[in-house]
Design a protein around this nucleic acid. Sequence first.
DNA 1: GTCTATAACCGGATAGAC
DNA 2: GTCTATCCGGTTATAGAC
Lengths: 224, 224
Amino acid sequence: MAGRTRKGEQTRRLILETALELFRERGYDETTMRLIAERADVALGNAYYYFRSKEHLVQAFYARVNEEQRTVSAPELARKTDLQARLSVVVRAVIEIMAPYHRFAGSLFRSAADPRSPLSPFGPESAESRRRGIALFVDVLDGSTTRVPDDLRAELPGLLWLYQMGVILFWIHDNSPGHRRTDRLIDLTTEIVAHVISLASIPILRPLRRRTLQLLAELRGDEP
Amino acid sequence: MAGRTRKGEQTRRLILETALELFRERGYDETTMRLIAERADVALGNAYYYFRSKEHLVQAFYARVNEEQRTVSAPELARKTDLQARLSVVVRAVIEIMAPYHRFAGSLFRSAADPRSPLSPFGPESAESRRRGIALFVDVLDGSTTRVPDDLRAELPGLLWLYQMGVILFWIHDNSPGHRRTDRLIDLTTEIVAHVISLASIPILRPLRRRTLQLLAELRGDEP
DNA sequence: GTCTATAACCGGATAGAC
DNA sequence: GTCTATCCGGTTATAGAC
């Protein structure tokens, strides 16, 4: 594997930092591999030695966002027990971290939806980063005072992670100053989501809940 | 504009049919503009004369799917009044029509999520095709016997169109034979969706409904 | 307005020498 | 690990024929 020696690690890091810098400055398409290599003062082929493709640079970006999201949210999560508040903290964090990459993130989501792309958040190459993303929502739930029915508890983190993906998709299309519209979306939707979760226990909705859970259970299992 | 004369229309059609054929056979990336031109027996430049980019060929694909979905669903819609049944008809239709393009559709959804891509279903270039897609769900609702609160009625077609996009996204990732898993998803989710819509009228859920509609109202208006 | 032919540019990706 | 040279395909440009 690439980047095993001290020197290799340094070169790898240099290339990644340069790439992220350029992504922020110019977006995805305008950032050519040639430009990354040039600014990092390495040969084009060398960039490809460390990152098999331009898309693999993006995987590295995902991993970093993930990591920072957890770090940034931790102190606030330690202080809050209200489900809406906790949800809001982590979702706001991910948007805040990605903020400098707004333009970049747009082109990014391209590959995200392609199942054969190594960048698809649903694909096998992203399993690890997805697992970590979902794990954060396990913490969000575990630390909250809201009562969640046991059957739902198992599925909820994955659903909340999907919800977060939805927010990110919205943010990508949001050009309001300081992503105000996305902030507002988070305000309103975390409230709705928390409300729905608390309603999930009431009797009239039991059939709906059972049906929904059955659906989720069925869809698990023979995923490619 | 290109394709105004009879002959031009024919050439345009020839290029499009050839492209769709190749998309079915080889997917998106493997289908080069050079290959399309070659098999259609036109010059490369001529293909670009009728379709400004490879992505514009895809817009044409969207339009056709849209059109066929309406045609194929029409007879069944004329006979059914149950909301779940009607929903099921149109969503199944769109999957059936796209079935031969499964691999192709995967790479397709790439550009779909990029707001700056001419293919984004949320972008201005797709406004017309989106409008038509949503219009079909207006028909689905209008012909059904389910009672829908007035405030919700305005928003629902757009939401159902989004739901359909979700199904398509699932289908893209579905490799089960004969897209059985997607069929099952449609069974279960149309039932859930229809159920939720019918529940929307009951009093306990009124606050939730109001809040959700307020959210949607607020998000409309200053979209980029 | 339609179309051909051909050359060129650009950027992602790879091969193979050092 | 790193470089240079090269391939490949989307896209553009040009010049001219019907």
